[in-house]
Amino acid sequence: MSKKKKEKIDVEEIVIDQEETVSQVAEEAEIQESDESTLEDQNLEASGEQDLKAEIQNLNDRYLRLNAEFQNYRKRVEKEKTDIFKYGNEKLIIEMLPIMDNFERALSSFEEDHAEDKVLSGVKMIKKSLDDFFEKNGVKKIEAVNTPFDPDKHHAVMTEEVEGVAGETVVSVFQEGYVLGDKVIRPSMVKVSC
């Protein structure tokens, strides 16, 4: 074999070696890129999972708040319904109180000697009907005389020093007060001892 031929073969072997080296480097680069992209994918997946978990937690919190608000709303509506049923006739009763006051004044203005009077007995019957109507609808008079003064139930218009009566005690009533259920619809106008 000639020297030229041998050199040509050596050059071909070098070229083949270089091609193999280049292909090995390319394969290693692809493997490295693949590993890096796998790591990036894993990092993206982990980041995506964290974002997803945070979003789920956020939605869960919103759901719990919304549910609590709805429960509060439902309770409030139920209470309002109950109050409407319980106090629905309050306005009517309040407008009837002056009528009741007038009947009481009329009865107190008659003297005992007119006890057989037909007008007096008619007024008493009407007053009794109003008392029954009030009782049927849960309206009661506020008992005030000789009770401790209660600013929620009594409206003091006078004070007077009375012997033998403790201070802050209702001495007399000028206008009757009424409660509807447990709600004061009109306080009693009273005189209080000091």
Rank of each mutant, 00 (worst) to 15 (best):
K127L: 03
T21W: 09
V184C: 03
M189C: 05
V190S: 08
A144M: 02
V179A: 12
F133P: 00
D182T: 04
V157R: 12
D101R: 01
I93V: 05
V170A: 06
P148M: 09
V145N: 07
K183W: 01
L92M: 09
L92D: 01
E163A: 14
I94R: 12
H155Y: 12
I56G: 03
M96R: 00
E161F: 10
T38A: 08
K53Y: 11
D51A: 07
Q57M: 09
L130G: 01
D17I: 03
V123K: 12
Q175M: 11
S47M: 01
Q18C: 10
N72K: 15
L39W: 04
L180Y: 00
E30R: 09
L44T: 00
D10R: 14
E19R: 09
E28Q: 06
E19L: 05
R186Q: 00
K79M: 03
E45P: 02
D10P: 13
K3Y: 13
A106W: 00
M96I: 08
P187F: 00
V165I: 15
D182K: 03
D150M: 09
E78R: 11
D35M: 08
Q175N: 10
G177W: 10
F85Y: 08
V119M: 13
F70M: 12
K3T: 11
S34Y: 12
N67S: 14
S188M: 05
L97V: 03
Q175R: 12
E12K: 14
N89Q: 10
G167R: 07
R76N: 12
A156Q: 08
V25Y: 14
E13G: 08
P148Y: 08
S129M: 07
E104I: 01
D51W: 02
M100F: 00
S34I: 01
V171L: 13
I9N: 13
E7V: 13
V179G: 08
L52E: 02
L64S: 15
Y73L: 11
S172D: 13
Q42I: 04
E7T: 15
G88Q: 07
D182E: 12
D51G: 04
D117R: 02
E111P: 05
E80C: 08
T38E: 06
K4F: 15
T147A: 11
K136F: 04
L92A: 11
V119D: 14
